[in-house]
Design a protein around this nucleic acid. Structure first.
Lengths: 113, 113
DNA sequence: TTGTTTGCTAACATTCAAGTTAGCAGCTGT
DNA sequence: ACAGCTGCTAACTTGAATGTTAGCAAACAA
Protein backbone atom coordinates (compact mmCIF):
# COMPACT_ATOMS: atom_id res chain seq x y z
CA UNK A 1 0.00 0.00 0.00
CA UNK A 2 0.88 3.61 -0.40
CA UNK A 3 2.72 2.98 -3.62
CA UNK A 4 2.54 6.12 -5.63
CA UNK A 5 1.11 5.55 -9.03
CA UNK A 6 0.41 9.11 -10.06
CA UNK A 7 2.41 12.12 -8.98
CA UNK A 8 1.23 12.49 -5.42
CA UNK A 9 -1.39 15.09 -4.87
CA UNK A 10 -0.75 16.97 -1.70
CA UNK A 11 -3.03 15.71 1.03
CA UNK A 12 -5.94 17.98 1.79
CA UNK A 13 -4.69 18.52 5.32
CA UNK A 14 -1.28 19.61 4.06
CA UNK A 15 -2.93 22.11 1.83
CA UNK A 16 -4.90 23.57 4.69
CA UNK A 17 -1.78 23.86 6.78
CA UNK A 18 0.09 25.75 4.10
CA UNK A 19 -2.89 27.97 3.45
CA UNK A 20 -3.14 28.85 7.09
CA UNK A 21 0.55 29.63 7.24
CA UNK A 22 0.13 31.98 4.30
CA UNK A 23 -2.67 33.73 6.13
CA UNK A 24 -0.34 34.51 8.97
CA UNK A 25 2.58 35.65 6.91
CA UNK A 26 1.35 37.04 3.62
CA UNK A 27 -0.14 40.26 2.51
CA UNK A 28 1.79 43.40 1.99
CA UNK A 29 2.11 44.29 5.68
CA UNK A 30 1.38 41.33 7.92
CA UNK A 31 4.92 40.11 8.31
CA UNK A 32 6.15 43.63 8.97
CA UNK A 33 3.60 44.07 11.70
CA UNK A 34 4.56 40.80 13.32
CA UNK A 35 8.25 41.56 13.19
CA UNK A 36 7.69 44.95 14.76
CA UNK A 37 5.82 43.27 17.55
CA UNK A 38 8.52 40.66 18.10
CA UNK A 39 8.77 40.51 21.91
CA UNK A 40 7.76 44.15 22.40
CA UNK A 41 4.29 45.30 23.26
CA UNK A 42 3.31 48.27 21.15
CA UNK A 43 0.51 50.78 21.08
CA UNK A 44 -1.51 51.22 17.98
CA UNK A 45 -0.11 54.70 17.44
CA UNK A 46 3.39 53.34 17.73
CA UNK A 47 2.72 50.85 14.97
CA UNK A 48 1.32 53.65 12.86
CA UNK A 49 4.55 55.53 13.21
CA UNK A 50 6.62 52.44 12.55
CA UNK A 51 4.72 51.68 9.37
CA UNK A 52 4.04 55.06 7.84
CA UNK A 53 3.14 53.59 4.46
CA UNK A 54 0.26 51.46 5.64
CA UNK A 55 -3.07 53.17 5.49
CA UNK A 56 -4.84 53.41 8.80
CA UNK A 57 -7.73 51.36 7.59
CA UNK A 58 -5.50 48.53 6.47
CA UNK A 59 -3.39 48.57 9.59
CA UNK A 60 -6.42 48.24 11.84
CA UNK A 61 -7.90 45.62 9.57
CA UNK A 62 -4.70 43.59 9.61
CA UNK A 63 -4.37 43.84 13.36
CA UNK A 64 -7.93 42.67 13.77
CA UNK A 65 -7.35 39.72 11.50
CA UNK A 66 -4.16 38.76 13.27
CA UNK A 67 -5.97 38.87 16.59
CA UNK A 68 -8.68 36.64 15.18
CA UNK A 69 -6.11 34.25 13.84
CA UNK A 70 -4.68 34.05 17.33
CA UNK A 71 -1.27 35.48 16.47
CA UNK A 72 -1.78 38.70 18.39
CA UNK A 73 -3.42 39.80 21.59
CA UNK A 74 -5.09 43.14 22.00
CA UNK A 75 -5.52 45.02 25.20
CA UNK A 76 -7.61 48.18 25.56
CA UNK A 77 -7.48 50.50 28.55
CA UNK A 78 -10.39 52.72 29.44
CA UNK A 79 -8.49 55.92 29.32
CA UNK A 80 -8.83 59.13 27.46
CA UNK A 81 -7.31 59.46 25.03
CA UNK A 82 -7.73 55.75 24.46
CA UNK A 83 -4.82 53.38 24.81
CA UNK A 84 -4.67 50.09 22.96
CA UNK A 85 -1.78 47.70 23.05
CA UNK A 86 -0.91 44.83 20.79
CA UNK A 87 1.48 41.99 21.51
CA UNK A 88 2.32 38.57 20.15
CA UNK A 89 0.20 35.85 21.69
CA UNK A 90 1.77 32.71 23.06
CA UNK A 91 1.34 31.03 19.70
CA UNK A 92 2.70 34.11 18.04
CA UNK A 93 5.79 33.96 20.16
CA UNK A 94 6.10 30.28 19.37
CA UNK A 95 6.43 30.96 15.66
CA UNK A 96 8.50 34.10 15.96
CA UNK A 97 11.75 32.23 15.28
CA UNK A 98 10.35 31.03 11.99
CA UNK A 99 9.19 34.52 11.11
CA UNK A 100 12.71 35.75 11.68
CA UNK A 101 14.08 33.03 9.46
CA UNK A 102 11.87 34.16 6.64
CA UNK A 103 14.05 37.21 6.44
CA UNK A 104 16.94 34.90 5.61
CA UNK A 105 15.06 33.90 2.49
CA UNK A 106 15.10 37.52 1.42
CA UNK A 107 18.82 37.74 2.06
CA UNK A 108 19.49 34.88 -0.31
CA UNK A 109 17.68 36.53 -3.16
CA UNK A 110 18.59 40.15 -2.85
CA UNK A 111 20.87 41.13 -5.72
CA UNK A 112 24.54 41.65 -4.89
CA UNK A 113 24.60 41.48 -1.13
CA UNK B 1 25.31 57.30 19.44
CA UNK B 2 22.60 55.00 18.28
CA UNK B 3 20.43 55.77 21.29
CA UNK B 4 16.89 55.32 20.23
CA UNK B 5 14.86 58.40 20.75
CA UNK B 6 11.84 57.52 18.68
CA UNK B 7 10.47 54.04 18.11
CA UNK B 8 13.01 52.65 15.68
CA UNK B 9 12.00 52.69 12.08
CA UNK B 10 13.09 49.55 10.35
CA UNK B 11 16.21 50.18 8.34
CA UNK B 12 15.63 50.48 4.63
CA UNK B 13 17.75 47.44 3.97
CA UNK B 14 15.72 45.35 6.37
CA UNK B 15 12.57 46.36 4.59
CA UNK B 16 14.00 45.31 1.26
CA UNK B 17 15.02 41.96 2.66
CA UNK B 18 11.57 41.25 4.01
CA UNK B 19 9.96 42.40 0.80
CA UNK B 20 12.14 40.10 -1.22
CA UNK B 21 11.34 37.21 1.06
CA UNK B 22 7.65 37.88 0.55
CA UNK B 23 8.17 37.80 -3.19
CA UNK B 24 9.53 34.31 -2.93
CA UNK B 25 6.92 32.94 -0.60
CA UNK B 26 3.70 34.83 -1.07
CA UNK B 27 0.92 34.73 -3.53
CA UNK B 28 -1.76 32.13 -3.62
CA UNK B 29 0.39 29.44 -5.23
CA UNK B 30 4.07 30.23 -5.01
CA UNK B 31 4.77 28.32 -1.84
CA UNK B 32 2.83 25.32 -3.11
CA UNK B 33 4.86 25.27 -6.26
CA UNK B 34 8.11 25.43 -4.36
CA UNK B 35 7.11 22.70 -1.98
CA UNK B 36 6.12 20.42 -4.84
CA UNK B 37 9.53 21.00 -6.35
CA UNK B 38 11.37 20.31 -3.10
CA UNK B 39 14.26 18.09 -4.28
CA UNK B 40 12.36 16.60 -7.22
CA UNK B 41 12.62 17.81 -10.77
CA UNK B 42 9.21 18.08 -12.35
CA UNK B 43 7.81 18.66 -15.78
CA UNK B 44 5.42 21.47 -16.35
CA UNK B 45 2.59 19.06 -17.03
CA UNK B 46 3.32 17.30 -13.78
CA UNK B 47 2.95 20.54 -11.88
CA UNK B 48 -0.29 21.16 -13.68
CA UNK B 49 -1.64 17.87 -12.43
CA UNK B 50 -0.32 18.47 -8.93
CA UNK B 51 -1.99 21.86 -8.76
CA UNK B 52 -5.29 21.40 -10.56
CA UNK B 53 -6.74 24.60 -9.16
CA UNK B 54 -4.14 26.96 -10.56
CA UNK B 55 -5.01 28.34 -13.93
CA UNK B 56 -2.50 27.57 -16.61
CA UNK B 57 -1.77 31.21 -17.16
CA UNK B 58 -0.96 31.81 -13.52
CA UNK B 59 1.12 28.68 -13.16
CA UNK B 60 3.34 29.61 -16.09
CA UNK B 61 3.52 33.17 -14.90
CA UNK B 62 4.55 32.12 -11.40
CA UNK B 63 7.15 29.70 -12.70
CA UNK B 64 8.59 32.40 -14.88
CA UNK B 65 8.77 34.81 -11.97
CA UNK B 66 10.38 32.24 -9.73
CA UNK B 67 12.98 31.54 -12.38
CA UNK B 68 13.68 35.25 -12.65
CA UNK B 69 13.98 35.54 -8.92
CA UNK B 70 16.54 32.77 -9.03
CA UNK B 71 14.61 30.28 -6.96
CA UNK B 72 13.97 27.89 -9.82
CA UNK B 73 15.82 26.63 -12.85
CA UNK B 74 14.12 25.78 -16.09
CA UNK B 75 15.33 23.31 -18.66
CA UNK B 76 13.74 22.84 -22.07
CA UNK B 77 14.44 19.91 -24.36
CA UNK B 78 13.96 20.17 -28.09
CA UNK B 79 11.55 17.31 -28.33
CA UNK B 80 8.08 16.87 -29.64
CA UNK B 81 5.89 17.11 -27.80
CA UNK B 82 7.94 19.64 -25.89
CA UNK B 83 9.46 18.77 -22.54
CA UNK B 84 10.22 21.39 -19.94
CA UNK B 85 11.56 20.67 -16.52
CA UNK B 86 11.66 22.84 -13.43
CA UNK B 87 13.79 22.33 -10.37
CA UNK B 88 14.93 24.30 -7.36
CA UNK B 89 18.10 26.25 -8.01
CA UNK B 90 20.99 26.09 -5.62
CA UNK B 91 19.64 29.08 -3.76
CA UNK B 92 16.22 27.52 -3.80
CA UNK B 93 17.58 24.39 -2.20
CA UNK B 94 19.36 26.53 0.34
CA UNK B 95 16.11 28.00 1.60
CA UNK B 96 14.04 24.86 1.30
CA UNK B 97 14.39 24.06 5.01
CA UNK B 98 12.86 27.42 5.85
CA UNK B 99 10.06 26.86 3.40
CA UNK B 100 9.29 23.61 5.12
CA UNK B 101 9.25 25.34 8.47
CA UNK B 102 6.64 27.75 7.26
CA UNK B 103 4.25 24.87 7.29
CA UNK B 104 4.83 24.64 11.02
CA UNK B 105 3.36 28.09 11.32
CA UNK B 106 0.20 26.78 9.76
CA UNK B 107 0.11 23.88 12.18
CA UNK B 108 0.14 26.22 15.12
CA UNK B 109 -2.88 28.12 13.93
CA UNK B 110 -5.08 25.47 12.47
CA UNK B 111 -8.12 25.04 14.71
CA UNK B 112 -8.29 21.91 16.83
CA UNK B 113 -5.29 19.99 15.71
C1' DT C 1 -13.15 78.28 21.98
C1' DT C 2 -10.28 76.11 19.13
C1' DG C 3 -7.15 72.59 18.30
C1' DT C 4 -4.85 68.12 19.57
C1' DT C 5 -4.46 63.32 20.45
C1' DT C 6 -6.27 58.49 20.16
C1' DG C 7 -8.33 54.46 18.07
C1' DC C 8 -11.76 53.70 15.34
C1' DT C 9 -15.62 53.19 11.29
C1' DA C 10 -18.01 53.90 6.79
C1' DA C 11 -18.24 55.00 1.89
C1' DC C 12 -15.96 55.09 -1.94
C1' DA C 13 -11.97 54.46 -5.49
C1' DT C 14 -8.13 52.24 -7.42
C1' DT C 15 -4.90 48.80 -8.30
C1' DC C 16 -3.29 44.37 -8.81
C1' DA C 17 -3.57 39.32 -8.53
C1' DA C 18 -5.96 35.70 -10.36
C1' DG C 19 -9.26 33.40 -13.44
C1' DT C 20 -11.42 32.53 -18.25
C1' DT C 21 -11.33 31.56 -22.83
C1' DA C 22 -9.31 31.08 -27.03
C1' DG C 23 -5.59 30.08 -30.04
C1' DC C 24 -0.88 28.18 -31.89
C1' DA C 25 2.88 24.82 -33.52
C1' DG C 26 4.49 20.38 -34.25
C1' DC C 27 4.43 15.77 -33.85
C1' DT C 28 1.75 11.19 -32.45
C1' DG C 29 -1.64 7.72 -32.67
C1' DT C 30 -6.10 6.08 -35.05
C1' DA D 1 -7.96 13.47 -41.97
C1' DC D 2 -8.57 14.23 -37.36
C1' DA D 3 -8.16 14.68 -32.62
C1' DG D 4 -4.77 14.81 -28.82
C1' DC D 5 -0.73 16.09 -26.13
C1' DT D 6 2.67 19.75 -24.88
C1' DG D 7 4.08 24.29 -23.26
C1' DC D 8 3.00 28.48 -24.35
C1' DT D 9 0.79 33.58 -25.36
C1' DA D 10 -2.86 37.24 -25.78
C1' DA D 11 -7.16 39.62 -24.66
C1' DC D 12 -10.34 40.18 -21.55
C1' DT D 13 -13.02 39.87 -16.97
C1' DT D 14 -13.57 39.22 -12.11
C1' DG D 15 -12.60 39.78 -7.52
C1' DA D 16 -9.71 40.63 -3.63
C1' DA D 17 -6.40 43.65 -1.54
C1' DT D 18 -5.20 47.99 -0.65
C1' DG D 19 -5.67 53.06 -0.53
C1' DT D 20 -8.30 57.74 0.19
C1' DT D 21 -11.04 60.72 2.52
C1' DA D 22 -13.99 62.05 5.89
C1' DG D 23 -15.97 61.78 10.35
C1' DC D 24 -16.59 60.68 15.59
C1' DA D 25 -16.18 60.87 20.87
C1' DA D 26 -13.97 62.21 24.95
C1' DA D 27 -10.68 64.55 27.39
C1' DC D 28 -7.05 67.88 27.71
C1' DA D 29 -4.03 72.00 26.76
C1' DA D 30 -3.74 76.70 24.80
Amino acid sequence: MNERIQPELMAEEERLIVKKALEVVCGKWRLFILLHLGQKVRRYSELRRLLPDVSEKVLIQELKTLVQLGVLQKQSYNEVPPRVEYRLSEKGLAVLPILLQIKDIGRHFLPAE
